[in-house]
Amino acid sequence: MIFSTKVGISGYGAYVPVYRVRDSEIERIWGGEGAPVEEKSVPGLDEDSLTMAFEAAREALTMSGVNREDVGAVLVGSESPPYAVKPSATVISEALGVTPKVIAIDMEFACKAGTTALILASALVASKAIKCGLAIGTDNAQAKPGDELEYTAGAGAAAFLISELSSDSVAEIECAFSYVTDTPDFWRREGEKYPRHTYRFTGEPAYFHHVISAAKGLMEEVGLKPSDFDYVVFHQPNVRFPLRAAQQLGFSTERVKPGIVCDKIGNTYAASSLIGLVRVLDQAKPGQRILVVSFGSGAGSDAISLVTREGVGKRRSSLSTLLERKIYVDYGAYTKLKGLLG
C-alpha cells in the first residue's frame, strides 16, 4: 500500500530494562546447549509492557519536538498488556499529557501489532484525519519456566511519532505490505499465564512463509529489489531466523546484521523488529532505504519500506546507552523479578 500523502517519522524512541539474564544461566538450571541468544532483558518488579511503552513513547515525542496537543493517536501494539480489560493506551496517553482529544487503542497480533500500529498511524496521518500519531510496540514476554521460549522471552518497547513528511523528518514511510493467513503456530488462551507453541511448525509454515511473502509482496508491488535496500530488519525471535530470511530473499548478511539486537536482549515480541529499526535509524545516513518485516504468530507479517531523510543523525535515541546499561541477575533473582515467587 502506498499512502495518499507523504508521511514520515519525526521522532523515535526505544526502551530496554536494565536487568539481564544470560542464557548460560538458564541452561545451568534447565540443561540444554546451543542457546538461541547470548542474554535477554528482564523487566524490574515494577515494570510491564505499559511502563516500557511510555518510556519509548516519551523519547519519540521529545525527539520530534511535536506539541502534545498535535498528537491525535496513541496506538499500542502488545500481546502482554497488564490488564485483560482496561486499555494501556489511556494510561500512556495521560502520562504523556496528550489526553483527552486522542484516538487511543490497544492492539494485539502476537509479535506483529507494533508494525501494524505504525502502518495505521501512517494511514491516519496520510488521510489528514490527525496531524501526528504515536505507534508503539511493547512486550514483556512470558514463558513457562523450562520451556524453549524461556531462553529468549525478553522485554522492551519502541515508539515512532508519525507526521506529514517535512524537511526535518527522520525517514519517509515509503510503502507497506501486509500478508496474513490463519496459521496456528503459537497462542495463549484467555486466562492462561503462558503461551503454547508448536515447536518446529513455528519455522517454515509460520515465520519464513509470512516474512518472505510480505517482503517479496512489497518489493513486487512497488518495483524494488533487494539491492535497493541499504538495511533490512526482520522480526528476531533468535539470531538464526533473520539471517536465514535475509539469505532466502537475497540480502547480504551485512545488510541485516546492523539491526540485530536479540542476541543481547532476547525476543521482545511486538517491539522486536521495531527496536531493530531504531538500531538502524541510530546509525543510518540520509537517503538510505530500509526494509522492516515483522512476524506475528497466528500469523502474519508487515513489510514496511522507509527512506531516511535529512533529520536522521541529527537526533539519536538512547538505545545504545540502554543496551550497555546492564545489571546481571542469576536465575534466582530472575524468578523474583518475573513474579514467580508468589
Partner: peptide
C-alpha cells in the same frame, strides 16, 4: 550515593 544524579521514570507503584 548521596548526590547521585537521577532521572524520572514511569513505573508501577
Amino acid at each position: 550515593k548521596e548526590g547521585m544524579e537521577v532521572v524520572a521514570v514511569f513505573r508501577r507503584y
